[in-house]
Structure formats: structure tokens, C-alpha cells
Design a protein around this nucleic acid. Structure first.
Length: 577
RNA sequence: CGGGGAGUGGCGCAGUCUGGUAGCGCACCUGCCUUGGGAGCAGGGGGUCGGAGGUUCAAAUCCUCUCUCCCCGACCA
């Protein structure tokens, strides 16, 4: 491709709207253009990357026996009413009416449609397993779209849905997708982790998220240094503390702590360590029932764990008024002593001795409070956030290591939620009717591209992994008006294209420095630099974008060199962990 | 939705407080000159200052309403 004929206007300055690096670089390298909040045009350069990622996804899914189809973006309300999600889904679902006044929505996901498709076709267990996928544009009316493709409202997603005869078969489908995903992200040249995650309100036994590791990621992932255990911080289990021998319980004592509310303030004021405090958080369930959650002063409550333990969809921190009603005191001075609501306590609290707690009274705390002696706990459990450096809950040797990640994919077991509500059944070998057991599997295509940039860049721009780079090689003609240089550059272009490499040939009549800057910004894996200076010595330069290494080779040697360098880059990238 | 900020050529910004008929850098076009890391000089095109209404002899600037975008938060299979 001749750059002089291509649509690629790079920006030297950073557009104000761009916060994250990948967003900035995508705008500067003319990959995307914003049309409205969270809605983008994929410009030629950006679309090439999208297509590369899609191709890898297709290959790996087809290898697993998945079948591609394409469902509509616009979906009728009836299907969503049937699955009960029309009312449940919330404002993220963009709804509208057609000219006849019938309700429709833009599909944020396709469980309903796929279940409808399959129930019409599925008759016998002989047709299973079945795994159908599509790559398509989805729409979720996010409250706050941001970071470019990282969190758009309209986005390209690969979604797959598996249908199986029973749980066991469904699990097999699940793991086959899990492994396909691992191959996909490896091939994309990304460092990633498959992490155990919270399965959320949708229910389901377990789920893995695939996170690309990047410091700018929005999610926190904890991974054991020794064993395989890796989990989203929302889910990461805490090791149950060793039971300790309880010794001398001291007499409780009420002490004035004027204006001291936070753990730090109280601990400092009383001259004790934060881990000697019991932090009492008051939450309210969906139905308005208050619940107290107790954790050690230096720990944080994990709301997801609490919510799941209680089997709730929603759980909120109580407001001042609710706290007063539930405890009799103002916020900041809550404590379990004499409290008459349900009390959940983290395991670590059970091991505490002579602790400090709020007294449910303004400016007052209790000293020497002991669980069971001074208050009753309804249930003990794992209710806190795990932290980096803690001992792994699954093995003896390892400790938690913390990463920031960008969620690019998820594999999820749906069970029979949709097949039952929407009547997607088949006859088993005994002629008995059964609902299909389903799974769903998503990959954010645009987000994968953005994550790749977050993970692969330097101060000069993007460094594309070979397999998803928009082109393989950039040729820089530094002296377009010099006949010999141009002939040499064109010859190299033709040769490489004959070998089916994708080549971007910078034949623009601009200064050399301009081309170098653009080439680094765009970030193709290799640059072939053809200039008067080198040609005089009979050489051109081949530069590796990632390392900056340059090698002088004879023009005729370029194809061989390109093959060699691309292969070695590819190999390195696919091995990255 | 709550809190904060911003809308002025394609991009980045100044001008707004103190009203006087729009400016700078980048990008773009022409020419000269230059040519290995975003050159220089000269000339040029492009903006009803987000929109509507109002005040005024006069509004980018003051007032009212409205739309959009960005940041923080809550939200998020």
C-alpha cells in the first residue's frame, strides 16, 4: 500500500478527549475517529487490526468445532420479555419503538436470540454438542463510556454459545473454549491471565475472565506465586487464619474518642494498632434490611463476597439515617456490642482479643471487646478483600501477587437459565425431554486491540505484536525524488508483496524525520529504511520497532531478513507470559 | 444520576473578568530553499466563536434557557 494514497493522517498533538495511552495512540495514529460518546469509526488502519484479531479468533474457534453465524443487532422485546430480562436489564439496554409502536432493543448480548434460533432447530441429543458464534457489533448504553475502544457503547464482540446434553458435557465445552481463548490471546502476542471471577447476578457455577496485564488496567487480579490459582480481587479467597488460643480477656471499658471516626484516627488516639480494631460496616439489602459486617481494622470489606453469601442482587452501604436507626448511634461509631441486627464477621475477627469497637454512641468506643463474650455473631465467613503478599489459600508455599488487568474475554456457564425460560429442549436417548445446558463466551475485539497497545508501546508510539499489526513491514523511502532510491524501494515493496507480506510503503514527499516519527508512532513490527546515504554503500537498513535494532543489508537480502526477523519476533511474542 | 470542568477553523489553545466586529501553534494549499529523527522563509484558503432567545448603538465576551463533550463517583454476564 502506498502511503501517499492511503487515508492516514497522524497527529503530533494529543487530542484533549484522550485520557489513556491506548486511546491517545489510537487517535494519533488515525486508527479510530469519534462519532459520538462511546461510538467510533474504525479508520482503515484501525480496522486492519480488528480484522487481524477476528481472523485469529475465527481460526481458533473453528478448530474447536464452533460454527459461525450472524444474528441481528436489532432484537424484538418479546424475546427479552420471555427471558424476563426486559424488565431486569436496566438502562444499559437501549430500547426503541418501530413505526408501528412495537418495542425493540439494540442487542447488548445475544442469549435470547441464539436460544430462539436453537430451539427452532434442536430436536435430538444427536445434534449436540453445538457451539455457535458470531462476530458482531453490540450496543450497551454505558453510563459513562470512556477510554476510547476500551469502554465504548458500541463495540465489536465475538460471542459464542454452547449447547450440551448435560452438565458434564457443558463443562467439556467450557474447557474447550477456555483453551481456545488461551491460544487466541497467545497468538495475539499478549501477556494475560485467566482468572477466576465472580459469576454475578446471572448465576452459574463458575467463570473465568481473561485479563491482559497492563498497569493501566481497571481490574485488580491476584495470582499465586507458586500454584495456578489466579482470581479477580472481587473473588479472590482469603486463607482462613489459624485458630489461636484465647488467653486473658480483659474487662470491657468505654472510652471517649471525640471526633475520632476512621480506623486510623481511633487507633492513633487510643495508641493501638489498626489490627486491634473491629471495623463495623452497616449495609442494607434490597428489601431494606440492615446487616452489619465486621472485619479487622486493617482489612477491607469485600461487598461481592457479602452479597453472594446473602444471595442478594444488590447490597449498599447504609446512609446516616439507616445507621442511626439500626445502631442507635452516628456513623463512625458503630460496633457489634448490643447490636440487634444480623451480624456477619470475617474469620479474622474470630481470632481477635481485647479489641476496640465503636459503642454505637457519639464519640465513644469500647475497649477490650471479645467476640462471643461481648457480642454474638450470626455467621462467620470470608468477607474481606484479599491483599497482595498474603499467603495463598490454595497452596502452602505461594503468596498473592497483584496485577492490573484489562478484561478482554470471559467464559461463562449459563446452565439451563435460558433454555428453561425460553423452552429450548431436546429428546435424550431415552426419549425424555430435557433443556439444553448452555454456556456463553465473549471476547471484546476492539478492547483486545486497545489492550494490546496498553501493553505494547514506548515513548515513540505503538509497538504492534506481529500477528495483529495492521501491516507487517513499513518501507521508508527517504529520498523520493532520487530515482535510484525510489527504484530500490519499489523493488523491495514488490518482492515483499509477492511473498504475501503486507507492506506499507511511505512514498510521501516529506522530510526523513517526519517519516521516522510516523513509522514509530504507527508501530509496524519492521521498518525498511531506504535512503541515498545507505544506497551509496549498497545497503538499506532493517529496523526492528520493538528493540530499535537496525541492521544494514543489501537490498536483495531484505526479503530473507524480513522473514527471519518476523519469525523470530513472532516466536518471542507467542511465548510471552 | 451526583460533583467538577470545557465548548472559538481538522487538532491543540489564547481572547471572555473590563462588550468595539476573531488570533496563535500544528495540519492544509502555492512557491523558494532544505532533505537520516516531526526544518526555514514568503504567500494563501478555511471559523455566523455548540444552539436558541434576550440586554445593548454594538455580544465570542453580559443575562436566561438548551445541547454536547471531558474528568471524579456510583454502575457494569
Amino acid at each position: 500500500m502506498r502511503m501517499s494514497k492511503y487515508l492516514l493522517n497522524t497527529l503530533k498533538e494529543v487530542p484533549r478527549e484522550a485520557e489513556t495511552l491506548s486511546h491517545q495512540l489510537m487517535l494519533r495514529s488515525c486508527m479510530i475517529k469519534k462519532v459520538a460518546a462511546g461510538i467510533y469509526t474504525y479508520m482503515p488502519m484501525g480496522y486492519r487490526v480488528i480484522r487481524k484479531i477476528e481472523a485469529i479468533i475465527r481460526e481458533e474457534l473453528n478448530r474447536e468445532g464452533c460454527i459461525e453465524l450472524l444474528m441481528p443487532a436489532v432484537q424484538p422485546a418479546e424475546l427479552w420479555q420471555e427471558s424476563k430480562r426486559w424488565d431486569f436489564y436496566g438502562k444499559e439496554l437501549l430500547r426503541f419503538k418501530d413505526r408501528k409502536g412495537a418495542d425493540f432493543c439494540l442487542g447488548p448480548t445475544h442469549e435470547e436470540v441464539i436460544t430462539d434460533v436453537v430451539r427452532r432447530e434442536l430436536k435430538s441429543y444427536r445434534q449436540l454438542p453445538l457451539n455457535l458464534y458470531q462476530i458482531q457489533t453490540k450496543f450497551r448504553d454505558e453510563i459513562r463510556p470512556r477510554y476510547g475502544l476500551m469502554r465504548g457503547r458500541e463495540f465489536i464482540m465475538k460471542d459464542a454459545y454452547s449447547f450440551d446434553v448435560d452438565d458434564q458435557a457443558s463443562e467439556k465445552s467450557y474447557w474447550s473454549m477456555y483453551h481456545a481463548y488461551a491460544r487466541i490471546f497467545h497468538r495475539c502476542g499478549l501477556k494475560f491471565r485467566a482468572v477466576e471471577a465472580d459469576s454475578g447476578a446471572i448465576g452459574g457455577s463458575y467463570t473465568h475472565e481473561f485479563h491482559v496485564l497492563a498497569d493501566t488496567g481497571e481490574d485488580t487480579v491476584l495470582s499465586c506465586t507458586h500454584c495456578e490459582y489466579t482470581a479477580n480481587i472481587e473473588k479472590a479467597e482469603c486463607r482462613k487464619p489459624e485458630s489461636v488460643e484465647h488467653g486473658d480477656f480483659l474487662e470491657t471499658e468505654k472510652r471517649e474518642t471525640p471526633g475520632k471516626k476512621s480506623v486510623e484516627e481511633v487507633a492513633e488516639f487510643l495508641g493501638v494498632q489498626p489490627e486491634n480494631l473491629i471495623k463495623t460496616m452497616i449495609f442494607v439489602a434490597e428489601d431494606g434490611t440492615p446487616v452489619a459486617v465486621l472485619v479487622r481494622g486493617d482489612h477491607e470489606v469485600n461487598e461481592v463476597k457479602v452479597r453472594n453469601f446473602l444471595g442478594l442482587n444488590a447490597l449498599e452501604l447504609a446512609d446516616e439515617e439507616t445507621i442511626r436507626a439500626a445502631t442507635g448511634g452516628p456513623s463512625g461509631f458503630s460496633g457489634p456490642v448490643g447490636l440487634n441486627i444480623r451480624i456477619l464477621a470475617d474469620y479474622a475477627v474470630r481470632e481477635m482479643e481485647n479489641a476496640v469497637t465503636g459503642a454505637n454512641e457519639k464519640d465513644m468506643h469500647w475497649l477490650n471487646v471479645n467476640p462471643e463474650r461481648d457480642f454474638k455473631v450470626s455467621e462467620y465467613g470470608d468477607f474481606r478483600l484479599a491483599e497482595e503478599g498474603e499467603q495463598c489459600p490454595r497452596c502452602e508455599e505461594g503468596r498473592y501477587e497483584q496485577f492490573k488487568g484489562i478484561e478482554v474475554g470471559q467464559v461463562f456457564r449459563l446452565g439451563t437459565k435460558y433454555s428453561e425460560s425460553m423452552d429450548c429442549r431436546f429428546l435424550d436417548e431415552n426419549g425424555k425431554e430435557k433443556p439444553a445446558v448452555m454456556g456463553c463466551y465473549g471476547i471484546g475485539v476492539g478492547r483486545t486491540a486497545a489492550a494490546a497497545i496498553e501493553q505494547n508501546n514506548d515513548e515513540n508510539g505503538i509497538i504492534w505484536p506481529v500477528n495483529i499489526a495492521p501491516f507487517d513491514v513499513m518501507i521508508l523511502n527517504l529520498d523520493v525524488r532520487d530515482e535510484d532510491v525510489s527504484i530500490a524501494a519499489r523493488t523491495i515493496e514488490e518482492k515483499l508483496e509477492e511473498m504475501s507480506f503486507e507492506v506499507l510503503y511511505d512514498d510521501r514527499d516529506v522530510r526523513a524525520g517526519f517519516k521516522f516519527k510516523d513509522a514509530d508512532l504507527i508501530g509496524l513490527p519492521l521498518q525498511v529504511i531506504v535512503g541515498k546515504r545507505g544506497l551509496k554503500e549498497g545497503v538499506v537498513e532493517v529496523k526492528v520497532r520493538r528493540t530499535g535494532d537496525r541492521e544494514k543489508v543489501a537490498p536483495a537480502e531484505v526479503p530473507r531478513k524480513v522473514v527471519e526477523l518476523l519469525n523470530s519476533l513472532k516466536e518471542q511474542e507467542e511465548q510471552r507470559r
